[in-house]
């Protein structure tokens, strides 16, 4: 296990929050995060081809990462009929948006398993969030290089 001190603080707070409640309430938290996921700004909503599809999600999820002055900005698009996928996106948005690029790159790849969600949503469904994180990191790396 990684020391939480190395995680972006909002992400570490979410892990703590999910860990402090039982599986049923974890699902409720996930639902709330899915509802809080911001809509796409017009520049992406009008140009969906600029988003990258995360194929590993059960339902289509699209994301884009912008790195400006070393800070990461995340954009997600997922249908309302896919609240779990939206919830995963919500966790990553809440936990990583506005963080320094290096802090995002330093997030361990197994972090999605630290929310206690595997038992609530089944381990099988966790792969979507793992894939989202890896794509966010890849785009962040590309954003830094570009």
């Amino acid at each position: 296990m990684t020391d939480d001190a190395t995680l972006p603080p909002p992400l570490a707070e979410l892990i703590e929050e999910f860990g402090s409640v039982g599986p049923k309430d974890r699902l409720q938290l996930l639902l709330e995060l899915s509802e809080d996921l911001p809509d796409l700004p017009a520049r992406y909503a009008d140009h969906p081809e600029q988003l990258e599809q995360v194929h590993e999600c059960q339902t289509p999820l699209f994301l884009a990462v912008e790195v400006t002055d070393g800070t990461v900005h995340l954009f997600f698009n997922a249908p309302k009929e896919a609240p779990t996928t939206r919830g995963f996106a919500g966790i990553l948005h809440e936990g990583l948006n506005g963080q320094p690029a290096q802090a995002v790159l330093d997030v361990p790849d197994d972090t999605p398993f630290r929310f206690g969600l595997a038992e609530a949503v089944s381990p099988l469904r966790m792969r979507g969030m793992v894939a989202m994180l890896s794509r966010i990191k890849r785009q962040t790396r590309a954003g830094l290089a570009g």
């Binding site: 639902l31 339902t59 609240p83 779990t84």
Partner: peptide, 22 residues
Amino acid sequence: DEDVLLYDTGHIPGSFKIDWHT
């Protein structure tokens, strides 16, 4: 449902969730 949370966003009154996996 495929999505384990879809029921929680709204369902037929009186219905219960059954999840294929869990």
